[in-house]
């Protein structure tokens, strides 16, 4: 019990620290929010241009929830980058906490931050386009967001390895991974338009099922029973990717300690 209390306290340390950092960088946060709203609006206006309400809905959901997924993904992936930049990585790594507690704290903050960010972007878009969401199944959409977050968290943990191993360019390499997820998830288009081999790849990308589920819930008002085909792949991916992410992170940490890569700053 004492161990669990200590680990939970350690996890909370990361949540509290990130909240404090978000407050201190409030100007940047406002700027980032403006960027996210502008980007989502720009994409969704393509639907307005086509005078196609279903396309507006589809693009709005794609842009909004891609923003959520990329915010969560980036936050976790940048866990190491941020500490390396500040020079605190060694202090965090020598603290008596399990890596699971470390990453859990970062992940929980990222999820809450992502939800708030997405809610603001979605509200602005709905008001801007005057959309009617009375038929939407918000509970099912939220369920897909939460379930999908688990597998995104697993991929984020794997991405966090890159800045640990590649000191100078690891951060940028996470953006490559992010862009590949964007390409194969069908964020702005149906994956049916992709070449066959890309469609095969899409079946292994969580974003595909998350966006399928959210679109069906928000546009067509479908509930969970009709969307089970998108639920079970997400459960499987979460069960596989989170332990895999933790295991790979552990291996990378061991490698960094063997080669002295924790020391490098900036």
């Amino acid at each position: 019990m004492a161990v669990m209390t200590r680990e939970l306290r350690a996890s909370y340390a990361f949540i509290e620290r990130n909240m404090n950092l978000t407050k201190r960088y409030w100007g940047w946060e406002v700027g980032f929010l403006v960027y996210a709203v502008a980007a989502a609006l720009s994409v969704t206006l393509i639907g307005e241009d086509q005078k196609n309400e279903r396309l507006i809905f589809s693009l709005m959901i794609g842009a909004t929830f891609w923003n959520y997924l990329s915010v969560v993904f980036s936050f976790i992936a940048e866990t190491i980058t941020w500490e390396r930049w500040e020079g605190t990585l060694e202090y965090t790594m020598m603290a008596p906490i399990h890596r699971f507690s470390h990453l859990l704290g970062s992940v929980l903050f990222a999820l809450v931050y992502g939800f708030v960010h997405t809610a603001v972007v979605l509200t602005v878009l709905v008001l801007f386009f005057g959309l009617d969401l009375t038929g939407a199944d918000f509970a099912t959409a939220a369920f897909f967001m939460l379930l999908g977050s688990a597998s995104v968290v697993g991929i984020g943990m794997i991405a966090a390895i890159l800045p640990l191993l590649y000191v100078e360019r690891g951060d940028q390499m996470t953006y490559v991974l992010n862009s590949l997820l964007l390409l194969f998830s069908g964020v702005y288009y149906s994956i049916e338009i992709l070449p066959e081999w890309m469609q095969v790849v899409s079946t292994f990308v969580p974003g595909t099922y998350i966006l399928n589920g959210i679109r069906a819930a928000m546009i067509d008002g479908q509930g969970l029973p009709e969307l089970l085909g998108n639920v079970w792949p997400l459960i499987v991916m979460a069960v596989v990717l989170i332990p895999l992410g933790l295991w790979l992170f552990g291996l990378a940490e061991r490698y960094a300690k063997r080669t002295g890569k924790l020391k490098r700053v900036g």
Binding site: A10, E86, A95
Partner: peptide, 18 residues
């Protein structure tokens, strides 16, 4: 090495919780 934008309080409480 600290989170330079945070105050000493915030940095010390973070370290203590760890």
């Amino acid at each position: 090495a600290f989170f330079k934008k945070l105050s000493p309080w915030e940095n010390l409480v973070y370290a203590a919780r760890l």
